[in-house]
Design a protein around this nucleic acid. Structure first.
Length: 393
DNA sequence: AAAACGATCAACCGCGATCTA
DNA sequence: TTAGATCGCGGTTGATCGTTT
């Protein structure tokens, strides 16, 4: 059976959109919403297929789109998220507010990919092209392994998010048992995206959905447990060094546990165990729920602000009381984004290359090592502190 | 001045996933 | 359960603009 075309090709316009078409589409969506994209064009008086309308809206006309030059922070985020997620542009876009996946993809292909290549870093693997470099230190190998581990985990997280989004539609029956919380509209929900924060928003407006956190929490718990047993995660050293993760913000060591009905319990290890109690979830009463929303909302706000705040992490605490803050050191930034031509010259004699035997003898290879370490350190830094991670749950 | 070339990015295409009747 | 409809994603194309020769 052949696939039917997305629209009747005959008579439908293709190519660049005219201002008149934009206006028609905007006016229609503003008044009626997009609803079914397939049904939209004739209603809006457009000779376009629904797919084309959707693309035009999501990539260009949507009011919450930020256009123009990418900031340094955005560039850093894209590079580091790409190291973690690969070409999953929509996932990356959820971490960059107001940027579309298409825009990010284009920017990667036209700018960032070239810069990494020029640096001698494989833009696909984010590893130095020289095996000699990647095996210089055991630590780096471990880091690579850990990054791979994190990538797998992130994939699991995204799948869990997708499942949550699906299941959230199924749990409507629960809303008949648990009343909608007051002021549920206090957190804006952007239905066009599905970031963790937005998912939290959806959950926040749908109390019964909290039970659906279980999968994500279990996933996180598995990672946490593994890290605890091995004594480290991402090569960061001891448990104490390990940022107490998003779960730490929910920890019973903090009296403001925003998920009191999720049954977090402090373990003998000092970590956080999740006491799964489905009966408890199933029996949430309205009064209890309303009371708990205060803490829950705070957590959601924290996560949202962390995402919107471009990697600031202020609302989130870590175990030793220090606030985790991303430090993009200038050297790394310059190296990664190609803003330091002089360094390029020094490193590569005008063009990027792998260290030669002469470099090894003169110590220049050390510079390569250091830059590569910096690169990976920043990737790991992002991974361990990213507000987008399901740690936050 | 104009042809050639390269960079950019909006838009299209095809496919897999999901929804729905 | 299944087939068709729809959506969303990632890869690719092609028009346009700026720069170089």
């Amino acid at each position: 059976m052949g696939r039917t075309p997305c629209c009747e090709k005959l008579g439908l316009k293709k190519g660049p959109w005219t201002p008149e078409e934009d206006q028609k589409l905007l006016a229609y969506i503003e008044e009626y919403g997009h609803g079914s994209w397939r049904a939209l064009p004739p209603k809006a008086g457009l000779q376009r297929c629904g797919k084309s309308c959707r693309l035009r809206w999501t990539n260009y006309l949507r009011p919450d789109i930020k256009r123009g030059k990418f900031t340094l922070q955005e560039e850093q985020s894209i590079i580091q998220l790409h190291a973690l997620l690969g070409n999953r542009w929509s996932a990356i876009a959820t971490h960059l507010p107001k940027r579309t996946d298409n825009e990010i993809k284009n920017y990667w292909n036209t700018h960032l990919k070239k810069r990494l290549t020029k640096m001698g870093i494989d833009p696909v693997t984010h590893k130095p092209k020289s095996d000699a470099l990647s095996s210089v230190t055991d630590g780096q190998s471990k880091n690579s392994a850990n990054l791979s581990h994190m990538a797998q985990w992130e994939s699991a997280r995204l799948e869990a998010e997708a499942r949550l989004a699906r299941e959230s539609k199924i749990i409507k029956f629960n809303t008949s048992m648990v009343q909608q919380r007051p002021n549920s509209g206090s957190l804006a929900v952007d239905s066009s995206s599905s970031s963790s924060a937005q998912l939290l928003n959806k959950m926040a407006t749908q109390p019964a959905a909290q039970a659906l956190c279980l999968d994500v929490l279990r996933a996180w718990q598995g990672i946490k447990r593994e890290a605890t047993s091995s004594g480290s995660i991402l090569g960061l050293g001891s448990n104490q060094d390990f940022i107490e993760s998003p779960t730490s913000t929910l920890s019973s060591t903090d009296n403001s546990n925003p998920f009191p009905h999720m049954g977090f319990e402090e373990t003998s290890r000092g970590g956080v165990e999740f006491a799964e109690d489905l009966n408890h979830f199933g029996g949430i009463m309205k009064e209890e729920c309303d009371e708990d929303w205060k803490g829950y909302e705070k957590c959601v706000d924290d996560v949202v602000s962390a995402v919107d705040g471009q990697w600031t992490f202020e609302p989130l605490k870590i175990v030793d009381g220090q606030e985790p803050v991303l430090h993009f050191d200038d050297g790394f930034t310059d190296l990664l984004l190609g803003h330091d031509d002089q360094k390029d010259q020094e490193m590569n004699g005008g063009s990027c290359r792998d260290p030669t035997n002469a470099d090894l003898e003169t110590g220049k290879a050390d510079e390569f090592d250091q830059e590569n370490k910096n690169y990976w350190n920043n990737v790991f830094n992002l991974v361990t502190t990213s507000p987008s991670k399901s740690h936050e749950f």
